[in-house]
Amino acid sequence: MDANKMDERIEGVQFSPIFREDTLGDFKDICKDNYKDFLKLFFLSKDINDYLESKRKEGDNSSKEYFTRLFNIRIRDHFSSSFILISQGFIVDAISLTRSSLEDLLVIINFYINKKFFNQWYENKEEFKVVVGNLRQNVKNSSIFEKEDGEFFDNVYGALSNIVHPKLNSVRLMSTYHPSFNNLDAINLKKYTDLIILSYYTYEIQICNFLENIYPDDKEKLKLIKQTLNDDISIKSLINLEK
């Protein structure tokens, strides 16, 4: 296509964040309950944020408490972006951001269980690397979490990684709901939206469990958030991503 014809195609086009209007319509029909659950998790993340803000001293912008709150906000943004992406069928991209959210959770936890890690992270020297595998192992070796917590996190993180890694399964997954292949099976859209909600739930449960150990005097406050999670959010079991 020559430049003139390209200019004709885009002349007068106004910006819109909606690239796949038909997909968005399908999403609104089949994922209504997911959207309600997402909003509940989103509003609960504000409660978590308010709690974390209470742990920061006025004027502080350099402590691990300060950066924990920033990471919580960043994670909320990741999940919000994931939901926008999945609503238009960008499955792999949505899951990639979702997995990043759980990796950020690992960073938060390591701030507290590994004193050297936060200092090295804050110094931000060129040779310092955040190695997710090491962060996961540190959490597993910590006495803060129960074995079941670690297994639950690993299962969710593993499911997300199976989608994100540029392997055969990931590329095939992309084609299960994509207009380029004329394949718009709404069942797949629903299935992976369930996984995003499950991951968001996982983050909020795990951060509350962790904070209970860091601030034992605040257990009742944090239990209220967890109780809301358990009472109000409909969580689907893990799906089989190998098929």
Rank of each mutant, 00 (worst) to 15 (best):
F210Y: 04
F71Q: 09
L189C: 08
Q137E: 13
E8H: 07
I84N: 09
G59A: 08
A186G: 04
E146H: 07
N183P: 05
F145I: 01
P17K: 07
T98M: 10
K5R: 11
S143D: 14
L39K: 12
E58F: 12
S45W: 05
Q14V: 01
K226Q: 11
I75H: 03
D7M: 07
D7A: 05
F42E: 14
M174R: 15
D217G: 09
R172T: 09
F15S: 06
G12I: 05
V164T: 15
F111P: 08
I196G: 02
N72A: 12
H78N: 11
F15N: 10
K129F: 09
F67N: 01
K40T: 10
S62R: 07
F38P: 00
I196D: 01
D33V: 13
H178F: 11
V131I: 14
F15I: 03
N162R: 13
N188I: 11
I187A: 15
S161M: 11
K115W: 04
Y200Q: 08
K221Y: 04
I91F: 02
F19V: 02
N110A: 06
K28Q: 15
P179I: 05
Q14A: 04
S100H: 07
I239L: 14
I113N: 00
S237N: 09
D231N: 08
K115A: 12
S199Y: 11
A186N: 10
D154Q: 06
M174A: 15
L189V: 02
L238W: 00
K40L: 14
L52S: 13
S101N: 04
I18W: 03
L198R: 10
F153M: 08
F67K: 06
F67A: 05
F38T: 09
D217V: 02
D50L: 11
D47R: 05
I144A: 08
L224N: 11
L224C: 08
I144W: 01
D33W: 03
E53L: 14
W121L: 00
